[in-house]
């Protein structure tokens, strides 16, 4: 049959997690189709059609899907589900929200946050905050899967899939969008940035996070935070890297003033290079860091800023 990938987007641009999920999907079943559900999101469908390996894009362009509310996403996905033997979505807060509803209605156990496709019916996924890896085999029948996209390379561009309009389903009438408060930032997005610089409780205040921002600007990095820093109110919740926040795997992860609690490590330990600056030499963060600097961050960060400037960053 075929695999269906549910696109992650904001009605204007296609999120990179979609192309990564396409890579995972192609290992489970081919051809791969992509469903773009949203409002005034034709540009997103056109971008999805360019992903190599995508044969068809289904476009459900309707106000009902503007915010991808789970209840309406459920009925929309179910309206095409019989044509697919696998349905995959990125394990974003959006995918995690709607996909279990689809699995439940299809009476299929969902496989959450796969890291690796071992074979078409066998997958690796993290349990206990990534402290163990479970290898699970799906029963015969449909597979409903969310994908931890840091484990997969984005499918290249170069495709030319057909775009087909998909009729909207009736409004479930169970929920309504009220409002949204999104953090605005000129910086790259945490989950797709090449470099991430995160601050922890060691920063001591929201004001001091500016020290992190300065370095991030020089390196075109995204800014993250530990749960402790978020709970202390230094930065908004969507900065949080960790088991219950965002999972990141950049080329470089620089942890500043972060002790390295298990739940934080779960969100960044797959980064290619990890560097850490922390006053306490015994901090667990140094056990996962490739390069560790035991130093007072209030001296080290301004120094780092100057040194980067000197080197032309």
């Amino acid at each position: 049959m075929a695999a269906l990938v549910i696109a992650e987007h904001n009605n204007q641009t296609l999120n990179e997690q979609t192309a990564k999920t396409v890579t995972a999907a192609a290992l489970v079943s081919t051809p791969v189709h992509v469903l773009v559900a949203g409002e005034n999101c034709k540009a997103v469908a056109e971008a999805a059609a360019k992903i190599a390996g995508v044969e068809k894009v289904l476009l459900a362009d309707n106000a009902l899907y503007a915010r991808m509310l789970a209840e309406n996403m459920e009925t929309l996905i179910l309206s095409v589900a019989e044509k697919y033997d696998a349905i995959l979505a990125p394990a974003s807060t959006s995918g995690k929200n709607y996909l279990p509803r689809v699995a439940a209605k299809l009476d299929v156990p969902q496989i959450s946050e796969i890291l690796k496709v071992v074979s078409a019916d066998t997958f690796e996924r993290p349990i206990y905050a990534g402290n163990a890896i479970q290898t699970v085999q799906s029963p015969a029948g449909k597979k409903i899967i969310t994908v931890r996209t840091t484990g997969f390379k984005a499918a290249a561009e170069g495709g030319s899939a057909v775009i087909e309009n998909l009729a909207a389903t009736a409004d479930a009438g169970l929920s309504k969008f009220d409002s949204e408060a999104l953090s605005k930032s000129e910086r790259p997005e945490l989950t797709s940035a090449k470099i991430v610089i995160s601050g922890g409780r060691g920063l001591g205040s929201a004001e001091n996070f500016k020290l992190i921002d300065k370095i991030a600007d020089r390196l075109h990095a995204a800014v993250g935070a530990s749960r402790a820093a978020v709970d202390a109110g230094y930065v908004p919740n969507d900065y949080q890297v960790g088991q219950t926040g965002k999972i990141v795997a950049p080329n470089l992860y620089l942890a500043v003033g972060i002790s390295g609690a298990i739940q934080h490590l779960a969100g960044m330990k797959d980064s290619k290079v990890i560097a850490a600056i922390n006053k306490d030499e015994e901090s667990p963060i140094f056990q996962v860091a490739d390069f560790g600097l035991a130093a007072d961050l209030f001296q080290a960060l301004p120094e780092l800023d100057q040194e980067l400037a000197k080197r032309g960053y």
Partner: peptide, 15 residues
């Protein structure tokens, strides 16, 4: 709590 910040939805009860 969503990836980009906060989203508020209104749910009909029961929920």
């Amino acid at each position: 709590e969503i990836d980009g910040g906060l989203q508020t939805v209104e749910l009909k009860l029961p929920a």
